[in-house]
Design a protein around this nucleic acid. Structure first.
Length: 635
RNA sequence: GCCCCCGUAGUCUAGCCUGGACAGGAUACGGGCCUCCGGAGCCUGGGACCGGGGUUCGAAUCCCCGCGGGGGCGCCA
């Protein structure tokens, strides 16, 4: 927030005969920057001071005019509006905004952000892209604040899904290599669909699949080895889509490693010793190991007051596996994986994989033992995630460490989006406002296809404006604009709200979009470039120069600049990267208004305005980077 | 039956946690703006808080009762 807040509160408090602590929380930023830097609504003081609020505002205004810090003090009805001396205020804001550490903090937590978590047997769709945007932005935000963060993708490679493809390749002569050089995850998706059909047609299929699943879960055999190699390849193809969106990971945790290392047996034996877990005899859960929820908070009124951990056939439920996995995350399991490097990502950061046996590989980063473990999973999983938390609680886990399920709204598709990608809909479906992803019907809008369309559009736009630029530059620019458009589109909406994906909206490059913010950044760069061409040196920040920024449009930008640390803080506190989108749009809008009204390079205020442009450029670039979006100098 | 999330202009949305000045913005529609730093922009016009109570000097915001939409409550994965 604005600097000087507490000084202002202190001065007002002295004149009002109250304490600083009583005044400070009441201070506001006026809705219109022209009104001043701070406002104090005096309604609440009326009772305490036994005066009319309007009178209080007027008396305080008169008294505060004598203050050194204050340029202007006025009463507007019951509001006291204060304008501070610009030299001091502006130079403080500008030098802060121009500094390397603007908005940063010194937090030192160990944090795990687990996201993506797609089944590694098909390409990622744009619903999963929302997950990726939220997850990666959080990783960037936490790191920005100084935390030690690991980004993890959980690979569910033991489910039935995987079995279909493996059976196809091992028993039905489906070639492992994509025939026409198709991207591997897209190929896997097609094979999967074909094998689902094969199971319907061929009575031998199911037995083969059950056998394959058993071997995969047991491990240490050729089928399991084939599966790992195959699944890894598919996951890497999926990760390519993430990398393209500039989302990067540190580790892939494979479910089969959890199985082979017997994490589950180890964790569940500890759960068995708690008073809330018992073997059920008779009733609907006969022969199961269950967690009794009736005495745990948050489950009142449910039909079933118990969660099954181990089924009567001896296998584990998802909730139970998740519980044990959560124990590893928080460092209370007492077991660890083995690790090996898997791939070097485009940003130079190494991606690691878990293993179930020791390797000769170099020492892995210090995975595990997190203070804060965040799992980005859509909100439909809330109940199960509550069961996981209940399990941790039953274990007596109430330490400083925290397990968080970060829910987000479901992504739907508009009918015309499906038609745009060539799917044929029934008349009834066409009339719906939104449709769910339905893999059974093959409705599947992938990140890769959406990115291609975006890139093509951005390319055309950019080419029209930069005819003299080379092909490589155009490609690069179109790519970063496509990423900007997609990530901003998927991030800007309130995390809790359902999102209806419409291709025409997503393809929009005007209005409240990533490219709008990117454009504003390019504009600020253009001014600084022009200054350089004209031999104008970039100024350093002095009070004298800062004091010239007195126009209301300049001040509107200043106020927004000063709010950046607060926007970062709110985005992290609520785990809502969308807050940053709103902030950046507001900053860009205010800057563009300033840009249109006031020339920078001509006139007396050149040095001050250049400082403003420099600061805006920096904050836009920093903010966009926190959303995984590049800030181009030209576009 | 119970629990959770969401209802703001034609459409999409910010503000809600922490109550305060005429509820911001985008899009679509109407009217303007490049002899001047990039028109992916700027200026301008009309258009909205689901309903009813309550608390308060003051409610989009907090509380209660409704209404509407979505999701969840499996030995599924």
């Amino acid at each position: 927030m604005l600097p000087f807040r507490s000084q202002v509160a202190e001065r007002i408090a002295r004149h009002a005969g109250l304490s600083k602590e009583e005044i400070e929380p009441l201070l506001e930023i006026p809705p219109d920057p022209a009104l001043g830097h701070f406002a104090l609504p005096c309604f609440r003081l009326a009772k305490q001071l036994k005066k009319a609020p309007q009178a209080i505002a007027q008396e305080l205004a008169a008294a505060l005019r004598a203050e050194q810090l204050v340029e202007k003090a006025e009463a507007a009805g019951a509001y006291l509006n204060l304008t501070l001396r610009l030299a001091a205020l502006n130079s403080t804001i500008l030098s802060a905004a121009l500094a390397e550490d603007f908005g940063r903090a010194i937090q030192r937590k160990r944090i795990l952000v687990e996201y993506m978590n797609a089944n590694p047997n098909k390409p990622l769709h744009i619903g999963q892209a929302r997950n990726v945007c939220i997850g990666d932005s959080l990783v960037r935000l936490y790191r920005f604040l100084g935390n030690h963060v690991h980004a993890v993708n959980y690979g569910d490679d033991s489910g039935v899904n995987i079995g279909y493809n493996v059976v196809g390749h091992l028993h039905y002569q489906v070639p492992e290599e994509p025939p026409s050089g198709e991207k591997f995850d897209h190929y896997c998706g097609r094979v999967y669909t074909e094998m689902r059909q094969k199971e319907e047609d061929d009575p031998r299929f199911k037995a083969l699949r059950v056998d394959v699943s058993r071997k995969i879960e047991a491990g240490g055999n050729p089928v399991a080895q084939f599966q790992r190699r195959y699944t890894e390849r598919c996951a890497l193809a999926q990760l390519e889509s993430c990398w393209r969106m500039r989302a990067y990971f540190d580790l892939v945790n494979w479910e089969t490693d959890i199985l082979h290392l017997q994490f589950f047996e180890h964790g569940i034996s500890r759960l068995k010793n708690t008073q809330h877990v018992h073997a059920e005899q008779g009733g609907q859960h006969d022969g199961c190991l269950v967690l009794d929820l009736s005495e745990l908070e948050g489950f009142s009124g449910l039909k079933t007051q118990a969660a099954v951990l181990i089924k009567s056939d001896g296998t584990a439920t998802y909730a139970a596996k998740d519980m044990v996995y959560a124990m590893w995350k928080l460092g209370i399991l007492g077991k660890d994986f083995y690790y090996a490097p898997l791939a070097e990502q485009p940003n130079g950061r190494w991606l690691w994989t878990t293993l179930s046996s020791p390797s000769e590989m170099p020492r892995a980063p210090d995975f595990g033992n997190y203070d804060l473990s965040i799992a980005v999973i859509d909100k439909r999983q809330s109940h199960e995630q509550n069961v996981v938390k209940a399990g941790l609680k039953a274990l007596g886990f109430t330490g400083e460490r925290e397990y968080v399920h970060l829910p987000y709204g479901v992504v739907y598709l508009t009918p015309r989006t499906l038609e745009h990608f060539g799917f044929v809909l029934s008349e009834e479906e066409k009339r719906e406002e939104r449709l769910p992803f339905a893999s059974r019907k093959g409705w599947f809008i992938t990140i890769d296809d959406t990115m291609e369309q975006l890139k093509r559009k951005a390319y055309a736009e950019s080419q029209a404006r930069n005819a003299d630029r080379g092909e490589a530059w155009l490609q690069e620019t179109a790519e970063l604009l496509a990423v900007g458009a997609l990530r901003f589109f998927l991030t800007k909406l309130d995390r809790n709200k359902d999102l209806t994906f419409d291709i025409d909206q997503a393809l929009d490059l005007e209005g409240e979009t990533g490219p709008y913010v990117q454009y504003t950044h390019a504009r600020s760069c253009a001014i600084l470039r022009k200054a350089e061409e004209q031999g104008i040196a970039l100024p350093s920040c002095t009070e004298e120069r800062a004091a010239t920024l007195a126009d209301e449009r300049e001040r509107a930008v200043m106020v927004q600049l000063s709010a950046f640390p607060n926007a970062v803080e709110r985005a992290v506190r609520g785990m809502e990267p969308d807050v940053l989108c709103s902030y950046l749009l507001e900053l860009a809008q205010r800057f563009n208004t300033f840009y249109n009204a006031l020339p920078v390079l001509q006139g007396d205020s050149r040095e001050g305005r250049l400082l403003l442009v420099m600061a805006v450029r920096r904050v836009l670039a920093t903010g966009l980077d926190l959303l995984g979006i590049q800030a181009p100098e030209r576009m």
